[in-house]
């Protein structure tokens, strides 16, 4: 799999670190109750199909970015 880093361009997946579902809303710092943080941190939609997720170019520019990818096919979409 090749991942398009918005800064460095397309690179092999082995240079990246996966950071999970990027569509979830993190409660604001210091806000949100236990349930809100639990749902944010522990529960995942985990869809079979289009997925927007975080990746870090950890062996490159260390940029964190959002990537759309289809989990049913590994087809890569936009990175931002």
């Amino acid at each position: 799999m090749r991942i398009p880093c918005p800064h460095c361009g397309e690179r092999d997946v082995s240079e990246f670190r996966y950071g999970g579902d990027a569509t979830k809303t993190r409660p604001k710092h210091g806000e949100g109750d236990l349930k809100a943080w639990h749902d944010y941190y522990f529960l995942f939609d985990n869809p079979k199909g289009p997925h927007t997720e975080y990746w870090q170019h950890v062996l490159g520019c260390r940029h964190w970015f959002k990537l759309s990818r289809n989990t049913a096919t590994n087809e890569i979409g936009e990175a931002s």
């Binding site: 975080y54 870090q56 950890v58 964190w64």
Partner: peptide, 12 residues
């Protein structure tokens, strides 16, 4: 390091 970068680049 990765965690601090994540917080700064993504959430804060």
């Amino acid at each position: 390091m990765s965690w601090l970068e994540y917080l700064l680049q993504v959430h804060w």
